[in-house]
Amino acid sequence: MAHSGASNTSTTIRFALPFKQESQLLNSVLLPTWPAIILFGHLANVVNIAIFLKSGIKDSVTTLLCSLAVSDLSFLVLIIPFVTSYITLHFAPNWVWPINRNIMFLAFQWPAFTFYDFSCYISVATGVTRCACVAMPLRFKSVFTKSRTVKLVIALFMVAVLLRMPVLTIYNIVLRQNPSTYSTDPNLVHSYKEILVKVNDILNRQSMPYINFIIMIACVIILTTKLHEATRVRRSHAAHSHTTRSTRHISDLKQPDAQRMSAKDIKVVQSVVLVCSIFVISQLPFSVFSTARLIEPEFDDKGYYHYLFAVCTVFSYTCYFLNASVNIFVYYRYNSKYRDALLSVFKRKAAFDQPSNIK
Rank of each mutant, 00 (worst) to 15 (best):
N357C: 08
V330S: 10
F108K: 04
Q283M: 15
S85A: 15
T181M: 02
T12D: 08
F52Y: 11
S191N: 13
I103D: 00
L203D: 01
S356V: 07
E194A: 10
D72V: 07
V197N: 13
P35F: 10
N200G: 05
A239H: 10
P137V: 00
I295D: 06
L175N: 14
Y331H: 10
I37F: 03
V269Q: 00
L68R: 02
V275M: 05
V150R: 11
Y210T: 11
M136V: 12
S23Y: 14
K141P: 05
K254T: 08
L223T: 05
S325Y: 05
R248N: 06
S4V: 13
F299E: 03
F286A: 03
R348V: 05
A351Y: 08
A351Q: 14
F40S: 07
D265W: 02
T149Y: 01
M261T: 02
R348N: 12
A239F: 00
P137R: 02
F279Q: 00
S85V: 13
T149G: 02
E296N: 15
S180L: 11
N187D: 13
L163E: 07
G56W: 00
D353E: 14
L89Q: 15
K151V: 12
P179C: 05
I51N: 01
V330W: 03
H306S: 13
M104G: 10
C312H: 00
C131M: 14
Y171Q: 10
A292W: 09
K337E: 09
P285N: 03
A230T: 01
A351D: 14
M1G: 13
S287Q: 09
R234W: 08
S67N: 03
T224D: 10
R130L: 11
D59T: 00
G41H: 00
A36K: 06
V167F: 00
P111I: 01
P93V: 08
A341E: 09
I103S: 01
A263F: 09
K264G: 01
Q354C: 09
A238V: 11
Y304L: 07
H306L: 15
S142Y: 11
S74P: 02
I173Y: 07
L68W: 05
N27S: 14
H3P: 11
S119W: 04
